[in-house]
């Protein structure tokens, strides 16, 4: 740890792992959160109907 370079490299090498795990967990929780299910189903269907004009 005698130079900023080594510090930076160390941060780079360790940080990514935890960041990756935390992010995957966050995304999975969001995606599988039970109350979000209806929202996603609706969104998937939404493009197939009723978009003939802006809502105004």
């Amino acid at each position: 740890m005698d130079s900023p370079h080594d510090t930076l490299v160390l941060v780079s090498k360790t940080f990514g792992l935890f960041y990756l795990i935390a992010l995957s967990v966050a995304v999975l929780v969001y995606v599988y959160w039970p109350s979000n299910r209806r929202k996603f189903d609706r969104a998937a269907q939404a493009i197939l109907q009723g978009e003939d004009k802006p809502w105004r």
């Binding site: 992010l23 995304v27 969001y30 995606v31 996603f40 998937a44 269907q45 493009i47 197939l48």
Partner: peptide, 19 residues
């Protein structure tokens, strides 16, 4: 999906692959 006239197979999967 629009052209096929069918909703996305898995909307959740599309979000996971997005992130």
């Amino acid at each position: 999906p629009k052209r096929a006239g069918r909703p996305l197979f898995s909307y959740r999967m599309s979000i996971i692959s997005f992130w």
